[in-house]
């Protein structure tokens, strides 16, 4: 378990990290980047698995089940969408270099 101030420190450092990582990004990458960060919060899948894992009653299982479906959708959909977009940048890179 992560307690009190330790958690606060983690939160603060991670917040600064996120801010710094993005701060100099060209406009053309805004959409792929949004999609990419969308994928990264797909880590919620891990939490949804734990929630469903220790669910006991039928209701808990039902909610947990929906949670895991949603989370898996977030992760997989986010990945495929981002990958497809970035694929195109690669293609046009190669095309540009070949000319």
């Amino acid at each position: 378990m992560i307690e009190g101030f330790t958690a606060l420190y983690i939160f603060m450092l991670a917040a600064f990290t996120g801010y710094e990582v993005i701060s100099r990004v060209p406009v053309i990458l805004h959409t792929p980047l949004m999609s990419g960060s969308n994928f990264i919060h797909g880590i919620v899948l891990v939490g949804a698995m734990v929630a469903l894992g220790h669910a006991e009653t039928g209701l808990e299982m039902l909610i947990g089940f929906i949670g895991v479906i949603l989370a898996a959708g977030n992760a997989v959909g986010g990945y495929v969408a981002t990958e497809r977009m970035l694929e195109m940048f690669n293609k046009s890179n190669r095309g540009g270099a070949a000319k």
């Binding site: 992560i2 958690a7 983690i10 939160f11 991670a14 917040a15 600064f16 990290t17 996120g18 801010y19 990582v21 993005i22 701060s23 990004v25 805004h30 980047l33 949004m34 960060s37 969308n38 990264i40 919060h41 880590i43 919620v44 891990v46 939490g47």
Partner: peptide, 17 residues
């Protein structure tokens, strides 16, 4: 911790975006 860090990073970078 993985959820905390990944979530927070997305939260702050997303806010900036």
């Amino acid at each position: 911790a993985a959820m905390i860090i990944a979530g927070t990073v997305v939260g702050s970078s997303g806010t900036l975006l």
